[in-house]
């Protein structure tokens, strides 16, 4: 994935100097292993800070709403789908955007590499094609990129950007025959009590920091329901009732909009698999309406349209 770095810099330089755009949103190299920082380039002399590797899992579409300038943005498959959602929801205008599409082979999961390091601290990580070389005090290991993909990337079926102005590389082969929902089916098969316990345990470590919500491009409401104070809807403690209310409602708010980009899960400081909530709703929307979020720029999402023939088995 590192080869995109040069392509991104070249495009950014060209677009800025030709005054096609005012700014470029990409990543710059992180200060710690497995991390890169979303970065806004405003002038040509900053272009060489742009960087790309398999640690660009944060969704850059999150930085677009309310922008008033002409902006170029690097977009993986999922990011481009979230751009489509933004366009459908009037969060940004297409003619303001210059999309640098990044056909994507998946981002890597920092947490799983950390878990396999078993307490050893990585101090340097360098990606080289299919391998990631990690070293620290007195050790060196090589991780196979493919084995350590983020769990959403491992089941991704839209690696190629769905909208773009130029591509940073040749389209990649889409993964075929992927089963996206084994985990959701496992939860569906649980008894009501089991499932309740499962969710309680899932969110037990949550510290209500809202990194999951804030890393998500879909969460752009001026005031989120959890922050509403006049009147206050949700308690702010870490009591399981309050915390679960937050998670359930957040998931419902992204139903039919979530692209499973994994930004939420990646951002969570305590490693909660918050996609367990959103994937269930993704599956429902797919089964009921045959709809995948952000894939078709010219079709209104099913949850903001009404058709007389809409299935309604959930109304009982």
């Amino acid at each position: 994935m590192r080869e995109y770095t040069e392509r991104i810099r070249e495009a950014a330089k060209r677009l800025l100097s030709e005054q096609r755009v005012d700014t470029v949103i990409g990543f710059r190299r992180g200060t710690v292993p497995f991390m890169n920082e979303p970065f806004l380039v405003k002038s040509v002399d900053q272009v060489d800070q742009l960087y790309w590797d398999s640690n660009c899992g944060i969704n850059l579409a999150n930085y677009l709403p309310k922008r008033t300038d002409r902006v170029a943005v690097v977009a993986k498959g999922c990011d481009s789908r979230n751009i489509v959602v933004h366009l459908l929801e009037n969060q940004i205008k297409r003619d303001q955007l210059y999309i640098l599409g990044a056909p994507c082979r998946g981002m890597v999961d920092k947490r799983r590499m950390m878990a396999d390091l078993k307490g050893k601290e990585p101090l340097h990580a360098e990606e080289n094609g299919k391998e990631i070389k990690v070293s620290g005090r007195g050790f060196q290991v090589t991780f196979d990129r493919q084995t350590y993909l983020q769990s959403n990337c491992a089941i991704c079926t839209h690696r190629n950007p769905v909208v773009y102005d130029e591509l940073l590389g040749d389209p990649v082969e889409e993964q075929q025959g992927v089963d996206r929902y084994p985990d959701v089916r496992r939860i569906e098969a649980m008894s009501v009590d089991e499932r309740w316990r499962y969710f309680q345990e899932l969110i037990a470590p949550c510290i209500r920091c809202y990194a999951c919500r804030n890393a998500c491009p879909l969460c752009y409401c001026p005031t989120c329901f959890v922050d509403e104070s006049r009147p206050q809807w949700v308690g702010k403690t870490i009591d399981p009732t309050d915390t679960l209310t937050f998670h359930f409602l957040r998931a419902y708010h992204v139903a039919g909009r979530c692209t499973d980009c994994g930004s939420c899960e990646r951002a969570c400081p305590v490693g909660i698999e918050v996609r367990k909530f959103t994937k269930k709703l993704e599956k429902e929307v797919k089964e009921l309406y045959g709809y995948e979020a952000g894939v078709t720029p010219d079709q209104r999402p099913p949850l903001d349209t009404f058709k007389p023939g809409d299935p309604e088995p959930f109304i009982k």
Binding site: E37, P38, F39, L40, N62, Y63, I207, R208, C209, Y210, A211, R213, N214, A215, Q232, G235, K236, T237, A267, P269
Partner: peptide, 24 residues
Amino acid sequence: FACINCGTCTFLCPTCWCFDIQDE
């Protein structure tokens, strides 16, 4: 620019002491 304004840094920090008071 990159900041998403979450509470991670302040909640994890040993010297961040700010609080809110609420009635439930």
